[in-house]
Structures are given as structure tokens and as C-alpha cells.
Write a protein that binds this DNA or RNA. Sequence first.
DNA 1: CCTGCATGTGAGAACCATTGTCAACAGGAG
DNA 2: CTCCTGTTGACAATGGTTCTCACATGCAGG
Lengths: 128, 128
Amino acid sequence: MVRTTRQRTAVAAVFDDLEGFHSAQEVHAKLRASGDSVGLSTVYRAVQALADDGELDSIRTDSGEALYRRCSTQHHHHLVCRGCGRTVEVAGPAVENWADRVAAEHCFADVSHTLEIFGTCAACRAAG
Amino acid sequence: MVRTTRQRTAVAAVFDDLEGFHSAQEVHAKLRASGDSVGLSTVYRAVQALADDGELDSIRTDSGEALYRRCSTQHHHHLVCRGCGRTVEVAGPAVENWADRVAAEHCFADVSHTLEIFGTCAACRAAG
DNA sequence: CCTGCATGTGAGAACCATTGTCAACAGGAG
DNA sequence: CTCCTGTTGACAATGGTTCTCACATGCAGG
Ligand SMILES: [Zn+2]
Ligand SMILES: [Zn+2]
Ligand SMILES: [Zn+2]
Ligand SMILES: [Zn+2]
């Protein structure tokens, strides 16, 4: 029996106003700053629950930190700016097929894949 | 001035006998078990140095742990078995081009990408 | 409306991979 | 062989994440 609490609602709401990927720590800080404070453990539990439900996508930093973002529900990948975090969802049917074909060639089953593209966006280049 | 030490040699040698990706902690344990013990900090420094030199590839676990493997030096991606860790290097020129094109379309520069495929190999399926 | 209670919360401790510290050590150039 | 400098490793510190558990609170069912 899953309950609707002020905390879970608040965490979900944070991602309404956010472009790009953000960590649980950042969400916690934003909530605290907005006066709508939520415990850190609860923020971790909430983002993980949202990610499990497919409400949030998650990726990992080079340093291993988990970042979350509200995305569309279809399968897609991300083009992420290293500077500002701005994120574009991209679809690549050809890539999906290629991955499945490669796996099949080597007799692998239950295939999944991760694919992210990183770069510097035009705005960040202009900003120097 | 980079020196050749027993420790660095030992760490590099561990990857000669290893298929698949392995963590610094695992390398440390293997060295200790083989009697050729090396300090944990030193193992971390060694694998990172090897990765910087392009001698090792690294990926990150779902839990954020860093894993290393000796790979060929050309650009490639990995098809990894979730069960046994067996890894196949795969090349996908079409994917490289697609990633660059997508990034260019959105005016992103300095583009890089990560792409890994996960599955279960035939041997692991047979083993149940 | 109440009440009961299973579920959710949060302050703080625990975890654990990784990194920093620094005194002792040991390649290797000269 | 010597000396200098890069290297090592026991240990402490970090930092993100998870666990603990006493307390609070949604939310059926009455
Ligand atoms: Zn997404
Ligand atoms: Zn940017
Ligand atoms: Zn590789
Ligand atoms: Zn396998």
C-alpha cells in the first residue's frame, strides 16, 4: 500500500522545474532552501522509488554519483552538456538494432544497453 | 620521471590472466592471496595510472564501483555478460558517426560518448 | 469523524569505495 | 655507491549512499 505524503510530492515536484540531471543531494538542498524541507534519507528513498516507477531516468557521473531527471517514457538516450547539464533526449532506432544484432551474434540474451553522449553546448561555448 | 616498481609491475600483471572487468579491491585481494601483496592505495594509484595511459579500460557498475580491464587500444565498446563478466570488444563505426551527427545537430562540441551492452552469455544460460 | 496500524519519516550512525597524509623506502642517474 | 626524488602503505579522512529505529502520519474500516 503506497502512500501519498508531503515529502514524496515535494520531491517529485522539484523535477518539474528542472532541466538536466540532478543528484539527490541537490534536490535535498533545493527543498531545504525553499523552506519545504525533507530529510536526506527520504529524498534518497523518493528518487529511487520514482526511478523504479520509470518516473525518473538516472545516469552516473564520472565520479560515480547518481543523477536523476524527469524524461519522456519512451526508450531514449541523452545528449548532455558537460558545462550546464542541459539535456536533449535522442532516439536512435538504428543503434538499438545494432546493439541487439551484435549481442545476438555473440549468443547473448536478455540484452540491455547504456548510451550517453556528452559535449559542450553552444551557450556554454559562448560563455567561455 | 616514472619508475618501474615491483608493485606497478604486479598490478599490471594481474590483468594478464583476467578476462572481464575487475575492481581495484579485487586486484588487491588477488595480489594478497598470491603472496605478492601490494598496499590498497598503491593498487588504486596503479590502476588509475594504467587507465590514464590507455593500458586499461574502465566502466562503472550500477552501484558506481569502478572496474578495469586490459583492452585493445583502438576505440571500441563492450558486450558484457551479467553473469560471468565475460567481455567482447565490439566496434560500431555507424554508431560513432550517429553520435557525432546527433551532437552536431544540436550544436554540441567536444563530443564523447559511452556505450555498453549487457546480456547473458550462452554459457551462463546453459548453467542456469 | 475516530481508531488502529501498517507505512513513511528523519536524525544520526554505519557503510564502503575511494582519496589524502606523511614518514619511511627504494629506483636509477650520475 | 650516493643522493635525490618519485613511490609506498598503514592509517585517517571523505563523501555519497544506506541502515536503524523511535516517532509521526496516511488512510481504510467502523
Ligand atoms: Zn531520459
Ligand atoms: Zn551547456
Ligand atoms: Zn575495452
Ligand atoms: Zn556469462
